[in-house]
Design a binder for these strands. Structure first.
Lengths: 203, 203
DNA sequence: TTTGAAAAGCTAACCGTTAGCGCTACGGTC
DNA sequence: GACCGTAGCGCTAACGGTTAGCTTTTCAAA
């Protein structure tokens, strides 16, 4: 995981970490909106421009580990056991993510995100990027040159499941409720005409 | 539609319209990012504070008519023919929306939105609000006190269908591809245990 | 050691957005 | 018709996120 590269890259990673730590500490102490970028930079003993060299926006400071989520979804498809069906593998991964958000020290960060519309919006658009990546992974897994409509739909449904489960009273039960729906949808996409009661209406 | 109220409200509506028109004209002429708020206000012959009294943000200038979309979805559920099944009614509405975006003078505005990440993000979070409203309408239609997980899932799937169809090469065909999936998902939600191959994994 | 480049810094601004405050025109009341 | 409360609008000044332009430091390869 930690590539043992030269001192330069180590220092860069350390700076990035120092900034993320300082930001999270301040945000948790006093609230996201109440802390300015200039303050975060000062706390991390770094120039504002340096901060923006490591993070593209203030919101990104809170989601420093978002790449892991995307990789998790993509890997759940690409590196699952041979011949394991697609949707159950995704279900396992989403369940793991939901649990990860519930336990651990993640609860305060969750509250932070829910408390700011800017952060909620940022998270949503992150998840949409993840859906695109997942769609591509699914298409690749099926040997398709590019993501079809069905692949994209599946990917968005899975991301929806993640979001809805997080917001539900009982997240794990919600996963258990949504994934049969996704299973049915995916099944319908692969075996068309079975349960389709509606037809294209030309007028 | 147009309530014939006093001069005061007429003037207010006129000001709002003048601002929206000026904004759209400038944005289409020179691009969204290239036009500043102060410029829009000047073009509409209005103070910046007045502009923000009518629109909550710069992005909102482009989506002056977003309420109609939300109402369309909710009405598609609440005011459909008696005993008409839910999902086909939603399908009709989404199809109408997709067509509305494709034809008419809506194409330049579409390009405008696709060309700016700020606008795309704003639209996505609008659509999420619409999904919440739709979920509530579905729950109400079923006589439920509040939206269940399945209602929320259906609502998000429908909004996903809208977004995916818009971005597809053949939007109408995409609707025809996704809605059978939604139909199957909704069917699975209402008749559980039929096609569920995965179970909750306790560990 | 020299050198090229990546990383970090500083200053000064741009731009969306808001606060504070004053003015005017409208709508209901006497 | 005079009166008053307030909604709509304006101005100025600022705040906070973000970027451009340019210099300085730090590392690595030659």
């Amino acid at each position: 995981m930690t590539a043992p590269t030269g001192r330069r890259e180590r220092k860069k990673a350390a700076t990035r970490q120092k900034i993320a730590d300082a930001a999270l500490r301040l945000f948790l102490e006093r609230g996201y909106e109440e802390v300015g970028i200039r303050e975060v930079a000062a706390e991390a003993d770094v120039a504002v421009t340096t901060l923006f060299a490591h993070f593209p926006s203030k919101e990104a400071l809170v989601f420093a580990r978002d790449r892991d989520f995307e990789r998790g979804l993509v890997d759940a498809v690409a590196e699952r056991a041979p011949h394991e069906p697609l949707v159950p593998a995704l279900r396992r991964e989403v369940l793991a993510m939901v649990r990860h958000c519930a336990v651990e020290g993640a609860a305060p960060v969750r509250r932070l995100v829910e408390g700011s519309t800017a952060l909620r919006r940022h998270e949503e658009s992150m998840l949409l990027r993840h859906a695109d990546a997942l769609a591509a992974a699914v298409a690749d897994d099926l040997g398709l040159p590019r993501a079809t409509t069905a692949c994209r739909a599946l990917a968005r449904f899975v991301v929806d499941a993640h979001v809805l489960a997080r917001g539900a009273d009982d997240p794990e039960a919600a996963v258990g409720e949504i994934f049969p729906m996704i299973e049915a949808a995916w099944s319908a996409a692969r075996h068309p005409g079975t349960t389709d009661q509606s037809a294209t209406q030309p007028s």
